[in-house]
């Protein structure tokens, strides 16, 4: 599974109906389970490894790993977006535990915790 939501870190973005990871996935593959209040990659076999979900997660709760068939998952790569949103730091750990950091200029835009969906029917309170 290329990305995996860590249930210990995910807080479902509180009351968000559609947390950033759910909204940013270009394949509509991540859903929020409202029973557990946590997001998960429902259609893991359809993941493209593109990582908008990881970059948008405010809790940094999504782990990037290779599909096992691509090599052992002890290696890891995690992005961290700086507070100024002008830089992104990637922390790479190879299969031997050797750590390397890469700081790259960017311009990351704010991603809101939730968003109104165009065309969604407004709740009917008339009953």
């Amino acid at each position: 599974m290329p990305v995996i939501v860590d249930p210990d870190k995910c807080n479902g973005c509180h009351n968000s109906k559609q947390p950033p990871c759910v909204r940013m996935c270009p394949g509509d593959l991540i859903v929020k389970d409202f029973q557990t209040n946590k997001a998960y990659l429902k259609y893991f076999e359809d993941c493209w490894d593109c990582l908008p979900c990881i970059k948008a997660c405010p809790e940094e709760a999504i782990r990037f790993q290779l599909s096992y068939q691509m090599g052992f998952f002890s290696a890891s790569l995690q992005p961290h977006i700086h507070r100024d949103r002008q830089n992104i730091t990637w922390t790479l750990v190879d299969a031997h535990g050797h750590k390397e950091e890469f700081n790259i200029r960017t311009k990351v835009l704010e991603v809101a915790l939730d968003e109104r969906i165009e065309g969604e029917p407004t709740p009917d309170f008339s009953i």
Binding site: P2, D49, S76, W90, L92
Partner: peptide
Amino acid sequence: PSQVLYWAAND
């Protein structure tokens, strides 16, 4: 990004 992780995972 997966290219970088792939290299790290596969020496």
